[in-house]
Simulated scan of single mutants.
Amino acid sequence: MTSRISILLGALACCCAASSFAQTTSDPNAPKTRAQVRQEFLVWYAAGYDPNDWLGYPDNAIRASRIIAQQRDAQAPKRTQ
């Protein structure tokens, strides 16, 4: 019985490990890699969001999202008509 459980757990571990490999696609709906999530967190943290500040939530998240939006707008290439 325990050998069946260990085989099942091993198979589940292999499936989970195989699905965690990053795929490089240009699909915006594709799952993000760990590095992408960490980079986004660092951007939010630099903009003033602190996930440990429960008393300031959601104000600190809203303020940080506005700062990030302004930074992205400033970095976006200007379109001419």
Rank of each mutant, 00 (worst) to 15 (best):
S65Q: 06
R72P: 00
I67P: 03
L12E: 06
F41N: 10
F41L: 14
I7E: 11
P28A: 07
K32L: 15
A47V: 08
I68L: 07
G48T: 10
R4M: 06
P58E: 05
Q75T: 14
Q23L: 12
K78A: 12
Q39L: 15
Q39Y: 12
A13D: 00
A18E: 03
L42S: 10
C14E: 05
P51S: 09
P58I: 02
D27N: 14
D50K: 14
F21S: 09
Q75M: 15
V43A: 14
Q23D: 06
G48K: 04
R38D: 13
D50S: 14
A74Q: 13
T80W: 07
S3M: 07
R72Q: 15
R34H: 13
Q70I: 01
L9D: 05
I62M: 05
P31Q: 05
I62R: 11
P28S: 09
W44D: 00
S3R: 12
A61W: 04
R66S: 08
A47W: 05
C14R: 04
P51F: 05
I67K: 15
L55Q: 11
Q75V: 04
A30C: 05
D53W: 00
W54E: 10
T24I: 04
S20D: 10
G56H: 05
S3G: 00
S3V: 12
A22H: 08
V43N: 10
L55D: 11
I7K: 08
A35G: 04
C15T: 12
F41C: 12
R34W: 03
G10H: 04
N29T: 15
A18F: 14
C16D: 03
R66G: 02
K78R: 13
A74Y: 02
A64T: 08
S19M: 12
A64D: 09
D73R: 13
L8T: 11
F41Q: 13
F41W: 06
R34Y: 09
A22V: 14
Y57Q: 00
W44G: 01
T24N: 08
A17R: 10
A61V: 04
C14S: 09
P28W: 04
A13P: 01
Y57D: 05
I5Q: 10
K78S: 00
I7W: 01
A30R: 09
A30K: 06
R4I: 07
R4Q: 13
S6F: 07
I68E: 15
L42D: 14
A13R: 03
K78P: 00
S26P: 02
C16L: 14
K32N: 11
C16W: 13
A11Q: 06
C15S: 14
T24Q: 12
Q81H: 07
M1L: 04
P58T: 10
V37S: 06
A46C: 10
R38A: 13
N60M: 00
D27A: 02
L12W: 05
I67N: 11
A22P: 04
A61M: 04
N60V: 03
I68V: 15
Q39W: 08
A18T: 13
A74L: 05
